[in-house]
């Protein structure tokens, strides 16, 4: 499925983040090769979103390194990280609510709009040329997500599922190599989840992306991801392919508590483990 010979795209080592006395992320390690689809799971409050915020620079790591394309990203402002090729979506959708669908996508092109402020104010031919070009690109993008008819709609008026799709479209418009999806299936019904899973596969193949995914719905994680890292209390407690993770007693314990884990252990009676 994945090619381990592909170069490393993201390499996180010894990452720590403290909020006051709270260690939200402890010695976090994660390596993602180009083209992989990796899941990051764990119970609520395990620190998954914090990891995302660290990768995208919204929080600055207390220590450790985040190497993206062999460049350390710690301490670099978020907008520059995005411009280097990491885009993300948010757990609670964060669109630009009062802007049109089209503008939501067009904003992603701002850093390479091709014209400057003066061109815009004086309306030079350069402005018209590039504005037309980026508008068409944005419209094509909306087309990929079947949102082209919605281009004039105000984003906050879209139904939930379309908002999710728009958010992913917007992230992709930033032309990332690594896409971070934070609980894309949250709040979706089972039919929508199926659609979403297809969408994730589709965009991965279509845009040659590497994807890191946080998700609670096991169906999505197990169905989509090639590798899974499990976090609890800010630490990595397990990593492996979906099958390995499903049978890992530590994971079961983290999710269901110790009693259930022991039950699972008794049931499987293959491995013994003391937490």
């Amino acid at each position: 499925m994945t090619d381990q010979n592909q170069p490393l795209l993201l390499e996180i080592s010894a990452l720590n983040k403290n909020f006051g006395g709270l260690r939200a992320v402890k010695n976090f390690e994660l390596s993602i090769h180009k083209g992989e689809l990796v899941g990051l799971i764990g119970p609520n409050g395990a620190g998954k979103t914090t990891v995302f915020n660290l990768i995208t620079g919204i929080y600055v790591a207390s220590s450790g390194t985040i190497k993206f394309k062999d460049q350390n990203m710690v301490g670099i402002p978020p907008f520059e990280i995005t411009r280097t090729g990491i885009a993300r979506t948010f757990q609670n959708i964060r669109l630009f609510p009062n802007l049109t669908v089209l503008d939501n996508v067009r904003i992603a092109y701002h850093s390479h709009a091709g014209y400057n402020l003066l061109d815009a104010i004086v309306r030079t031919p350069r402005f018209f040329h590039h504005e037309k070009e980026l508008t068409e690109r944005a419209q094509d993008f909306l087309g990929v997500f079947n949102l082209q008819d919605r281009q004039g709609e105000i984003a906050k008026n879209l139904p939930y599922g379309e908002q999710r799709r728009l958010e992913i479209a917007r992230a992709l418009a930033a032309e990332p190599q690594l896409l971070l999806l934070d609980e894309p299936a949250a709040g979706m019904n089972s039919k929508e989840v199926v659609t979403l899973m297809e969408l994730i596969h589709f965009i991965r193949d279509r845009f040659k992306l590497t994807i890191l995914l946080i998700e609670h719905q096991m169906r999505v994680v197990m169905g989509v991801c090639e590798w899974i890292t499990v976090m609890d209390f800010g630490e990595v407690i397990a990593r492996g392919n979906p099958a390995e993770i499903q049978s890992d007693p530590k994971v079961v314990e983290a999710y269901l508590g110790r009693g259930a884990a022991e039950l699972a252990k008794k049931l499987s009676e293959k491995r013994s483990h003391v937490a």
């Binding site: 919204i58 978020p78 907008f79 948010f90 964060r94 701002h110 850093s111 992230a171």
Partner: peptide
């Protein structure tokens, strides 16, 4: 935050 994440 969304603006930051879009490279603004």
């Amino acid at each position: 935050i969304a603006a930051k994440a879009m490279g603004i």
